[in-house]
């Protein structure tokens, strides 16, 4: 089952990688992958989520408790948050200025996805991330 899924994802990534981004087939392929990811998340996740949404939203805000319980881990998480904010902030700044001297993140990815192989590899990574988000870290039944 897993091997069939991996083979199908690989074939899809290669097929999608050969399409131009303006074609209807490319759009349908991406929309179908998004639909499959949402459906898989619902089917695989019923009754297997680790915590309720409200507790999840409240979780990060008790910073003092996190620091007391695990200082190193909390500071490490802070570094990830800072780096993520740096990526978002610099991308927004580059997008707002619309200058050739300030490339945006999607412009950089555009160079990667210009070739069939590069686009297929990026699609494959995107599918892997989607599968991880949709299916990963569930509670055992």
């Amino acid at each position: 089952m897993v091997l069939v899924g991996l083979a199908a994802a690989g074939a899809f990534a290669w097929w999608e990688g050969g399409l131009d981004q303006s074609t209807t087939a490319a759009h349908i392929g991406v929309l179908a992958a998004i639909g499959v990811a949402f459906a898989a998340a619902v089917v695989a996740g019923r009754g297997r989520q680790r915590q309720p949404s409200l507790a999840w939203v409240r979780g990060p805000w008790s910073l003092r408790r996190h620091l007391a319980e695990d200082r190193t881990g909390t500071l490490g998480a802070g570094v990830w948050v800072s780096l993520t904010l740096a990526v978002i902030g610099w991308d927004l700044n580059s997008f707002a200025h619309q200058s050739r001297a300030l490339p945006t993140l999607s412009g950089i990815f555009g160079h990667l996805t210009a070739s069939h192989g590069g686009r297929a590899a990026t699609v494959a990574l995107w599918l892997a991330l989607g599968a991880l988000i949709a299916l990963g870290w569930r509670r055992a039944r």
Partner: peptide
């Protein structure tokens, strides 16, 4: 994830 995929593979 879906929005990023749509932007990268369909819009850019």
């Amino acid at each position: 994830w879906g929005g990023a995929g749509w932007h990268l593979f369909c819009q850019r």
